[in-house]
């Protein structure tokens, strides 16, 4: 009789399991919309160099600030560059930088959080106070300092963003670990004499992985906003590379008579952020983590 149930809930390999999670996420409208937006942006970022109708850096005084038309779908900007071309290319740097930035944030934040949660005591106290201290520094000021000292290359931006957005993950990972280490299977592993590393790897990570991944997805969207703010302030991507933050910053003065050059990058940026947010929420629901009961840190 028991076996009936088990045949239904058959052994699934990892690929099938991820597919199952994706299916659950897409089963609700919000999750489906989120996934579609994210997928759209990722595909666009991959193929945009091949489909872009114009050269993104071709300046021409003849085509300055043209309104949207059949030739220039989203119009042109103050230097005569095609806004459509620049918009579809504008997400590439942001996506790459923030994706790798989030990975770094997840890795160091997650591992440090788990370690602190497990060992506890004085080490935990000291590390958490340091993390708190960093949380109290306005990140944008600190980022500006780093960027002005080390430059705005991606080699600087990725680890710097990764560091600043990982602080919050430390707290989430630590809290998730605290939930797990009270359980008897951790006590059992301890009593058997497993090392801390082995306990973290075998017993804790499989149980906190979901919570940390969801948090990482959330951080990704925040980081995207942060990165675009840096570009907006002129500390992110350097011109003439197309970037949404930079485009908004350049075009905002002309908003009153050339709205098209600012609207397209805004739509691009906000739709991606909303998409990632919706996806992260659907992901959390599919994994059975209720974000609403956990205070954001």
């Amino acid at each position: 009789m028991q076996s009936n149930l088990v045949t239904e809930d058959k052994q699934k390999n990892k690929l099938e399991k991820s597919f199952e999670i994706l299916k659950t996420m897409a089963s609700k409208p919000s999750g489906l919309i989120g996934l579609t937006i994210v997928l759209f942006h990722v595909v666009l970022a991959l193929i945009s160099p091949y489909i872009a109708p114009y050269d993104y850096k071709a300046i021409s005084p003849n085509t300055m600030l043209l309104a949207p038309s059949a030739e220039h779908w989203f119009g042109t900007d103050s230097l005569g560059r095609d806004v459509f071309t620049r918009t579809i290319l504008g997400g590439r740097t942001a996506l790459t930088v923030t994706f790798f930035g989030s990975l770094i944030a997840l890795l160091w934040g997650g591992l440090l959080g788990i370690f602190c949660g497990l060992v506890g005591g004085k080490i935990d106290d000291v590390v958490m106070r340091v993390v708190d201290a960093f949380l109290s520094i306005p990140w944008i000021l600190a980022m500006l300092l780093i960027v002005s000292l080390l430059g705005t290359s991606t080699e600087v931006l990725i680890p710097a963003l990764g560091f600043f957005y990982g602080k919050g993950i430390v707290r989430v990972a630590r809290a998730a670990t605290h939930d797990v280490i009270a359980k008897d299977f951790i006590v059992s592993a301890r009593a058997r004499g497993h090392s801390n590393m082995s306990i973290i790897w075998n017993e804790i990570i499989p149980n906190v992985r979901d919570a940390i991944l969801v948090e990482g997805a959330m951080r990704w969207s925040w980081m995207l906003l942060g990165f675009s703010s840096l570009s907006f302030l002129g500390f992110g991507v350097s011109p003439p590379t197309p970037d949404w933050g930079l485009m908004i910053s350049n075009a905002r003065g002309l908003m009153s008579f050339a709205y098209w050059s600012v609207i397209a990058p805004i739509v691009g940026l906000s739709s991606l952020i909303i998409g990632i947010n919706l996806t992260a929420d659907a992901f959390a629901k599919a994994l059975g983590i209720d974000r609403s009961t956990k205070a954001p840190v």
């Binding site: 299977f185 059992s188 009593a191 058997r192 004499g193 075998n202 499989p206």
Partner: peptide, 22 residues
Amino acid sequence: PNDLRAIQLIFQNPDESLNPNH
């Protein structure tokens, strides 16, 4: 390690003493 091996524990609630993800 040998003393650790020689003494083993069984807990009250198997829901808590078995890792749900293993």
